[in-house]
Simulated assay, not measured.
Amino acid sequence: MPTTDPDRRHEALVREDCLRLLATTAIGRLAYTQAALPVVRPVSFSLDGDEVLIPATPGSPLLGAVRGSVVAFEADAYDAIARTGWTVTVIGPSRVLGGLPRPDLCLIAVHQGLVRGWRTCAPPLG
């Protein structure tokens, strides 16, 4: 988003609004490069300070693909009937956090470097 619908209004969101909206959902998309090709993968996530945290299992090929790389993370919500919604993108370096209390879990931490967002709204009435 923004959509290409000419009858919708598009507003850029400030960082604070982007982070507030991200906190309202738990599923997003992680975009990274693997074997020189772009990959987009749906992931669950949470926010912690200046990082997006994405759970992964130790030994997952995803960990090697993103460790130390600059990645993009995106989450959104859209009302198909009203044709309104929002999207937020976070771009930043990633790192893998291991040594958690659960040995079957590690986290991909994406630093909230560049945070951008858009809201698509219905035009004002009248």
Rank of each mutant, 00 (worst) to 15 (best):
R9E: 08
P58C: 10
A77P: 01
V39Q: 06
S94L: 05
A80C: 13
A82I: 09
L125Q: 15
A31H: 05
S69K: 15
R95V: 11
P38C: 10
F73P: 01
S46H: 04
H111G: 12
V96E: 00
G59E: 07
D17C: 00
A75M: 05
V40M: 13
G59Y: 09
V70K: 06
G28P: 07
L13Q: 00
A77E: 14
P2A: 06
S46Q: 07
A65S: 13
M1R: 01
T120R: 04
G64P: 03
T33R: 07
P124V: 10
G85S: 09
R116A: 13
D48M: 12
A109Y: 04
V71G: 07
E74N: 07
A109I: 04
V40D: 02
V52L: 02
T87N: 02
L62R: 01
L47E: 04
G59M: 08
L105C: 14
A23I: 04
E11A: 14
V70P: 03
A36Q: 12
R83P: 01
A26C: 07
P101Y: 11
W86K: 09
L63T: 02
A75C: 11
R67C: 03
T4S: 10
A36K: 08
P123Y: 14
F73D: 02
R15L: 03
D48V: 12
T87F: 01
L19N: 02
V110D: 08
T24R: 15
D79C: 11
G64R: 07
A26P: 00
R9A: 08
P93L: 09
P2N: 00
P6A: 03
R119Q: 11
A26D: 11
C18E: 06
G59H: 12
C121S: 14
D5I: 03
R102Y: 09
A80M: 14
V90W: 03
E16A: 15
D104T: 14
L62I: 07
Y32I: 06
I81P: 04
R95F: 08
A77L: 04
D7S: 13
P101Q: 09
M1T: 05
C121Q: 11
R102H: 12
Q34V: 09
A35C: 09
V110R: 10
C106M: 12
P61T: 06
A65F: 03
D7N: 13
Y32F: 15
V110Y: 13
A23D: 10
W86R: 03
A77Q: 12
V52K: 00
R83A: 15
L21S: 01
A31T: 09
T4M: 08
Y78P: 06
G59Q: 12
V70T: 14
D76G: 10
D76Y: 12
D5M: 04
V14K: 02
S94R: 03
R15A: 06
G68M: 05
A35T: 13
P101F: 14
A23E: 11
A26K: 09
F45L: 10
L97V: 15
